[in-house]
């Protein structure tokens, strides 16, 4: 193992980590807002990848151009899921935690079934997109272009999110609702509207990630499952509910994954991520940046 291979794999790990952060951002946002873990998050990613694929296959729209469209579509989808399912799960008086887990889990299974029904279980891929399969060499290190663009998009999305949460009325309403949902009702903010917009925004973020993922990853009904667990670990590492913790969590997960792949056989690369998760929560039971 030379220094070059190590730097090379850490660099790709960093890019992938930034993308993991983007995938997990929506999950963290929704959790922070209303203490709900969306167990259908991986399926949101799957839907985003299919939307990208069909925009490319039918309208020849390149995934990079499609990304905003996919994000918009997912925004609507996320808000609808909140209004049709999650809103009712929030009302459960008994076993509230259980109801949230299993209603979103059930939703995930339905979404997978629908994807199989309408799109068949076949593996699909976006071929001949602008950046697909291309690499760029920076100082002797080869970086895959789709991941590089994904990483830059992730940073841009987090910066935008920062300004959005801190500088806009809706962002302030979001923060206020997460701090005290009862009190905001008194000042005339409709809690349900804020939650629906929060779900829309969370889904839009995973939509952006899905558009990029579609460039270099196979698209099939179960694709979300493999990324969902990584997203949960990412969010939990950062501390549930901390959106910017998800950013840091993503980078850690990407680097750990790359390092593990250097040491252990590639089929065991996820073991490193899971082990680091356990290690962190055993030492800090509320994640790295979660409030104690």
């Amino acid at each position: 193992m030379t220094a070059e291979t190590i730097i090379q794999s850490l660099a790709s790990g960093l890019l992938m980590g930034l993308l993991y952060g983007l995938i997990a951002a929506g999950l963290a946002l929704i959790f922070g807002l209303m203490d709900v873990v969306n167990f259908a998050h991986g399926e949101f990613l799957m839907i985003a990848m299919y939307v990208t694929f069909f925009l490319f296959a039918f309208f020849a729209i390149d995934p990079l151009l499609a990304a905003p469209l996919v994000a918009a579509a997912l925004f609507v989808f996320g808000a609808v899921v909140y209004l049709l399912v999650v809103r009712f799960a929030m009302r459960a008086k008994a076993n509230a935690g259980m109801v949230q887990i299993f209603s979103t889990f059930g939703l995930a299974i339905v979404m997978r079934g629908l994807a199989q029904f309408f799109f068949t279980p076949d593996y699909r891929s976006v071929t001949n997109s602008w950046v697909g399969g291309k690499t760029i060499s920076i100082g002797g290190i080869y970086l895959p272009e789709p991941q590089l663009i994904g990483a830059m998009l992730s940073i841009a999305a987090f910066v935008a999110l920062y300004f959005f949460i801190n500088r806009t009325d809706f962002g302030r309403a979001l923060e206020a609702t997460r701090e005290d949902a009862g009190a905001v009702a008194l000042v005339g903010i409709d809690k349900n509207r804020v939650f629906a917009l929060g779900w829309g925004l969370g889904a839009a973020l995973v939509g952006l990630a899905g558009a990029i993922m579609a460039i270099f990853f196979y698209i099939y009904p179960d694709v979300g499952a493999s990324f969902a667990l990584i997203a949960y670990v990412t969010v939990a590492l950062g501390g549930f509910g901390s959106v910017f913790g998800a950013f840091a969590g993503g980078i850690i997960v990407g680097l750990v994954e790359a390092t593990t792949a250097l040491i252990l056989p590639p089929s065991l690369k996820s073991v490193g991520i899971y082990a680091v998760y356990l290690l962190v929560v055993f030492i800090r039971p509320r994640g790295l940046f979660g409030s104690m």
Binding site: F105, G106, G113
Partner: peptide, 14 residues
Amino acid sequence: GRGVDLIVYGALIV
């Protein structure tokens, strides 16, 4: 293999 079983199953859970 068309996933109708998953749809029924998931909808029941929800």
